[in-house]
C-alpha cells in the first residue's frame, strides 16, 4: 500500500517536471515560461519528496525530505520574482496572442 502510494507520487512528480519543461519549450515569452517552471516544477518536487518520504526509514528522515520543499519554494518564489522584475525593468512587454506579437 505504502509502496503503491510512493510509486504513484514519484510518477506524478516526474509528470509535473515533464509538464514544466514542455511549458518552458512551448510558452511564448519569459513571463509565461516563468509560470510554467515556478508552478509545475515545484509541484513536481513536492510530489517527489512526499513519495520518497513514504519510503524513509524513520520519521525524522521523512521530515527531513519534506523540509526541503518549503526551502525550495522560497528559492523559486524569490528567483521568479527577481526574473519577472528584471524582465519588466528591461521593458519586455508580455505576449498577448498572435496579433500582438512584440518581436521587432
Amino acid at each position: 500500500m505504502t509502496e503503491f502510494a510512493s510509486t504513484t507520487l514519484l510518477l506524478l512528480g516526474a509528470f509535473f517536471y515533464f509538464a514544466g519543461t514542455v511549458g518552458l519549450l512551448r510558452f511564448p515569452d519569459v513571463y509565461t515560461r516563468l509560470h510554467a517552471l515556478a508552478k509545475a516544477d515545484n509541484l513536481g518536487l513536492g510530489c517527489l519528496l512526499a513519495g520518497l518520504a513514504l519510503q524513509a526509514d524513520s520519521l525524522a528522515a521523512a521530515l527531513k525530505l519534506l523540509l526541503i520543499w518549503p526551502i525550495a519554494l522560497v528559492a523559486s518564489a524569490a528567483v521568479s520574482y527577481a526574473i519577472a522584475r528584471r524582465a519588466d525593468a528591461l521593458r519586455l512587454a508580455p505576449w498577448r496572442g498572435e496579433q500582438g506579437e512584440n518581436k521587432p
Binding site: R33, L37, G44, V79, I83
Partner: peptide
C-alpha cells in the same frame, strides 16, 4: 532575452 537566461537559476533549484 537576458531574463530567459535567468530561468536556468530556477531550474537548478527545483530539478
Amino acid at each position: 532575452t537576458p531574463a530567459d537566461r535567468m530561468l536556468t537559476a530556477l531550474l537548478f533549484g527545483s530539478t
